[in-house]
Design a protein around this nucleic acid. Structure first.
Lengths: 127, 127, 127, 127
DNA sequence: GTGGTCTAGACCACC
DNA sequence: GTGGTCTAGACCACA
């Protein structure tokens, strides 16, 4: 899986990295159980610091997406556990709300949001 | 127009302030040419620092939404056209993408996202 | 509130720090809303690195015990939210189980555990 | 005696192994003088590295629980007396303290902790 | 070789 | 002055 970071982005490197990995998991580029590069390996490959990679890996571990083992390395969680309980759904809804709110503030209509959403799913590969 | 800031929000105060003003302009609560409170006046009204208000006003001036005039104070631009350029749209799309990734990772289907989105707009209707 | 770290302990410094702060909150040495020393201030006071303090503060933020604000500093959460839902209770029970298991493994009887527990509450100040 | 290791546990494998053996000795599943499997045999049986078993055996030897003899292999010490010294008791007490702190922070009373503890021992009775 | 922890020191955004 | 992020480089425990 190819990972590209934009050092000029306003987004923190570890956030970008987290998103890329999430994207990979969502699209099947990374499969449950698959081993990821070592913290130091990926860091040197991306030309960034070990701690930055470590931070991203650990946050994804907290989110239940990765499994981190001190001596065996980092893998995609076998059970990228499907969290569809109501509490979690409401968290996601809140995130959606934030985006919608920002669209409203800028005069972007629901139709345009729908269109963007459709594009996102299209980019995602139609699945 | 009523402005509400959340000091505990992760969002910087000046960003919140900018959004509230943009929202007011986009929805007609603030009309072109309308005079806004002075930097000091608004700051004291909101209980925040003068610099924070000033920063928001100036950034909105840069965006062409406000006009700052030494003697006349701050007014809404006569020629506001809150419309987001493509660059900004892509920022929003990226935010949408993040939410979608998270849904995918957790096995939440596009249909469910559509439903959530509809609900968000429904809730918004009650404002 | 006095904080003492043991650099020779096997326990990581940031864990020790977290526990001391938790202890402070549990015993009223730190009250809801109270401001804590700045990341750098506490670090220099304790003679440790800024990042170590930052890590402890942030983990406590994740646990809902502290509130971290980029420009206003760190405070004890106003609502050190009482989490007594069943899901959370079962987490605590699991932690208790681990301790009990270790006692069993070493031939320490329930009576002795009860005694230790009583002592802990006694040390805590009887409240 | 059946030994079960959890490779995904945060606890190091050799620690888990030590605890299982101690548990066996403390509860009579392993009797003084009884011969244990060879390092290589147990390692292959458990599917773990030989070094890991060796480390556990040697640490238990240091604790006086096992006897390692070049020609006779590894046996349970004839004079085992699994009894924890005060230093170790204070380690356990510290662990108990941590759980208690967390309960306090979350408004869980001593009575509730006592109740949980009783439940833990009840669950344990079913082993 | 794997991740975890800690230090030292830099630059940034926000107020 | 506040915390956040990133880098560079060191030592440790575990397998």
């Amino acid at each position: 899986m190819i990972i590209r970071l934009d050092v000029n982005s306003e987004e923190a490197l570890y956030i970008q990295l987290m998103n890329q990995i999430k994207y990979g998991v969502a699209n099947g580029y990374l499969t449950p159980g698959e081993k990821l590069p070592s913290v130091r390996g990926l860091a040197s490959e991306l030309g960034i610091n070990m701690h930055t990679v470590s931070k991203a890996y650990n946050l994804l571990k907290d989110e239940g997406i990765l499994v981190v083992n001190r001596s065996k390395g980092v893998t995609v969680s076998e059970s990228v556990l499907i969290r569809t309980d109501d509490a979690y759904l409401s968290v996601l809804k809140k995130k959606l709300e934030e985006v919608v709110y920002e669209c409203e503030v800028n005069g972007i209509s629901k139709a345009e949001v729908d269109e963007m959403l459709a594009e996102v799913y299209l980019d995602l590969g139609g699945k």
